[in-house]
Design a binder for these strands. Structure first.
Length: 748
DNA sequence: AATATCCGTATTTTT
DNA sequence: TACGGATATT
């Protein structure tokens, strides 16, 4: 391809980037180191293609999240000449799953699918497994059978890695190997029920897309829609996704993938770096471009991150460098404990803000969602606004599932998981009654093929009504109202909410907070043209941040970013604060089983550290006031993460307390703490009934006016479960504003 | 058969 | 700690 314009932005590219952007045709692998302008390069590539006359709808851009696609396309949009307004909006962009969802509805017929299929998310899939496990009588036996979540992940791993069940069990779930027969039985039934119910789970979306792509008739037709396929974050794709790409490539010569094997962090989802490493063999004639200049970070930070990844035994064949200047070295901040870690983070965050770095240009990163719990309380106390990405369990909350089940049953009357939940909403209806009712509605076995008589219509006609169950009638009316005249999704939620009000009041504590979550959902629904689009969207691109739910107004404000490392992928911030850099946190002690897992944790740390542009702080609390594993010790000393050994630490400045002084002879307060815990242990030894307190009082006192004071209610709000800082109603966990707006009140 | 209560255990990351 | 599973109670 020839560059057709000499737009100024072309000159912003370095020779390697330009090579990638201008690549003439055929497969291309771009190995893009952290911060090497990958997103920018992809955006330029898209813009360049459109400028050259490729119709935007003939470009397929596959990313790891919808957010990433949006980001890239909006950048491309700004590059494209103004004579083509909104051209980038017509690019096919999204995750593999979201694109599959779209394509499969177009090509449902040749695949033998119903175009109206609904999508089962991971926990729905697990619920279906559970339903089947009950039906097959595998639940109540002597030996314990794998839990539904385990079943779901065994299944998913088998499918995505393309490895036979036996192998998966042996490698990843050895403790379930004896149950292989039962598992096989469940999987068989699981598959046939999904088909009968017209539902697809995440894995099905990929499986059917692959089947479509490999189909001699429909495959080329589907692939023929596209002239270019671009894949971002290719290191985090799995075997199934590679197959899809390969099949597309039979028809589409122009396949470009971008990735970095040093940033592979999704092997738990069966992703494999082999996709990148073997790309040149699997796509013969592929060009390879390596982007090694880092535009993000200062050299001092790059020296540190290079040192971290250099210890990886795998070969990462890149040397990153920067011309942004030396900058200041990263800082390892040793803290006495978690509380001090919170103080240190807050202090440094505010310091940077004073120096002109707004909160939103700063991020606090951590390994798992709950690692930020204490910090969230402290931020709230100090009136520092924040938004949290990842770890949000909005979709997992029981009350949210309740409404979604209702919507799903309306959308797809054959959805067994949905019905099972819906039918247990009325008072007096439990699992047994629900199963009986489902049988009466024609669910569970082969659903009736007669389109005029769905389980929904049968239910609405009221063939069967257990007289003892009073609330079945309100349920029927609510569902009926939602089918009459096909009201918009938001109106349906409003109607369902009225039905759910007494149900929630009876079932949940903090029912009002949960009802307010439904109002949030109602607001969200208003942005979608149909119920089916809303459901697909929620399944494929669930709200990932507290702000996703709150809507646009918040975006004008300044707020600190809190994020899991996984959710931070692709992001960059002027100042990055990584907390809990202790062994057991990173690497997570759940991932220290085999060396592959540990290596992935190392890359995870690498990803976290490489998000920083100018300033990087790594915080390490010496002492944790919680029981590590059922031991009676009220605190224990942590080790610095094994990924920052002395050689690597040479690249860091040090701050905070002196670890030797803390753990050794110790200053008075450490001694006092140790003594206190010793006394507690002694006392508890005397009566031996009450275990010693789990926490010595280290958490910041919680102001009475902050909703987190009502602990139980905060938990019951469902959002950010168990998190005292959680505001009601799914709104961002936002502390009272600096300017004095009161926090949302939680009902008691 | 449903609901209340108690106990043990697993405990991450996301489409 | 919070959830699932098991047991006790209505």
């Amino acid at each position: 391809m020839r560059l057709t314009r000499t737009d100024p932005w072309l000159e912003t590219l370095n020779p390697k980037q330009r090579e990638a952007v201008a690549h003439a045709g055929g497969p291309l692998l771009v190995v893009a180191g952290a911060g090497s302008g990958k997103t920018w390069t992809l955006a330029c590539r898209v813009a360049q293609l459109i400028d050259r006359g490729v119709p935007p709808q003939r470009i397929l851009l596959l990313t790891f999240s919808r957010r990433a696609a949006r980001e890239m396309l909006s950048r491309a949009e700004r590059l494209i000449g103004s004579d083509r307004p909104a051209a980038a909006g017509r690019v096919w962009g999204g995750t593999f799953h979201a694109v599959a969802n779209r394509l499969l509805r177009l090509y449902a017929r040749p695949l033998g699918l119903s175009p109206d299929f609904t999508v089962l998310d991971q926990s729905d899939g697990a619920d279906l497994m559970n339903l089947i496990r009950g039906d097959l009588g595998l639940a109540a036996r002597e030996r314990r059978f794998p839990r539904k979540e385990t079943l779901a992940s065994i299944y998913s791993r088998t499918v995505n890695a393309g490895v036979p069940l036996e192998g998966v069990l042996r490698q990843a779930f050895p403790w379930c190997a004896e149950e292989a027969d039962g598992i096989r039985l469940i999987f068989r039934e699981y598959t046939s029920r999904k088909r009968a119910q017209r539902v697809l789970d995440y894995d099905d979306l990929l499986l059917f897309w692959r089947a479509l792509a490999e189909d001699p008739g429909a495959g080329p037709h589907m692939a023929g829609r596209f002239d270019h396929v671009l894949v971002d974050e290719y290191q985090d794709t799995n075997a199934l996704q590679a197959d899809i790409l390969l099949a597309l490539h039979r028809t589409v010569p122009n396949v470009m993938v971008v990735g970095d094997d040093a940033q592979a962090i999704y092997s738990f989802r069966s992703a494999t770096v082999r996709n990148i490493l073997e790309f040149p063999e699997r796509f013969p004639g592929a060009g390879v471009v390596k982007l090694e200049q880092n535009y993000r970070s200062t050299q001092a930070l790059i020296d540190a991150t290079n040192a971290v990844i250099a210890l990886s035994p795998q070969r990462h064949d890149k040397t990153l460098w920067s011309d942004r200047g030396t900058g200041s070295r990263p800082v390892l901040v040793t803290c006495r404990d978690e509380a001090e870690q919170c103080d240190e983070v807050c202090r440094r965050v505010l310091e940077h803000r004073e120096r002109g770095v707004p909160l939103r240009r700063q991020a606090v990163l951590f390994r798992t969602g709950h690692h930020s719990d204490l910090l969230e309380v402290e931020l709230a106390r100090r009136n520092i606004p924040f938004v949290k990405y990842g770890g949000l369990k909005f979709m997992e909350a029981a009350h949210v599932k309740d409404v979604l089940a209702l919507l799903r049953v309306l959308e797809n009357p054959f959805d067994e998981v949905g019905w099972f939940r819906v039918l247990q909403l009325p008072e007096g209806m439990g699992p047994v009654a629900a199963r009986r009712e489902m049988a009466a509605l024609g669910l569970g076995g082969d659903p009736s093929p007669d389109p005029g008589r769905t389980p929904l219509s049968r239910f609405l006609e009221g063939e069967y009504r257990p007289s003892a169950v009073r609330e079945i009638e309100p349920l029927r009316q609510a569902l009926a109202d939602c089918t009459r005249d096909d009201p918009p999704a938001a109106a349906q939620i409003e109607r369902l909410r009225r039905f759910l009000e007494p149900v929630f009041a009876r079932r949940y504590e903090g029912a009002n907070a949960r009802l307010r979550d439904l109002e949030q959902l109602e607001g969200l629904a208003g942005r979608f043209p149909s119920r089916s689009r809303l459901l697909a969207e929620l399944a494929l691109d669930p709200p990932t941040s507290t702000s996703d739910l709150a809507g646009p107004p918040l975006l004008d404000e300044d707020y600190l970013i809190l994020s899991t490392i996984h959710s931070a992928k692709g992001g960059e911030w002027d100042a990055v604060h990584l907390i809990h850099a202790a062994d057991g946190m990173i690497p997570s002690d759940m991932a220290t089983g085999n060396s592959d897992d540990v290596e992935e944790e190392r890359r995870l740390l690498y990803v976290a550290l490489t998000r920083a542009r100018d300033a990087l702080y790594v915080y390490f609390p010496l002492r944790y006031y919680r029981r590590p594993r059922g031991l009676d010790d009220a605190h224990h000393y942590a080790q610095l993460t094994r990924f920052l050994p002395p050689g690597v630490l040479d690249e860091f400045d040090r701050d905070g307390v002196d670890p030797a002084a803390e753990t050794g002879d110790g200053p008075p307060d450490a001694a006092a703490t140790a003594a206190a815990s010793g006394v507690d242990r002694f006392l508890s030894g005397l009566w031996d009934e009450e275990p010693p307190p789990r926490h010595l009082a280290v958490t910041a006192p919680r102001p009475a006016d902050w909703p987190g004071g009502a602990d139980r209610d905060a938990r019951a709000s469902g959002v950010g479960e168990g998190d005292p800082g959680a505001a009601a109603g799914g709104t961002p966990r936002r502390p009272p504003r600096v300017h004095g707006v009161a926090p949302p009140a939680l009902d008691r």
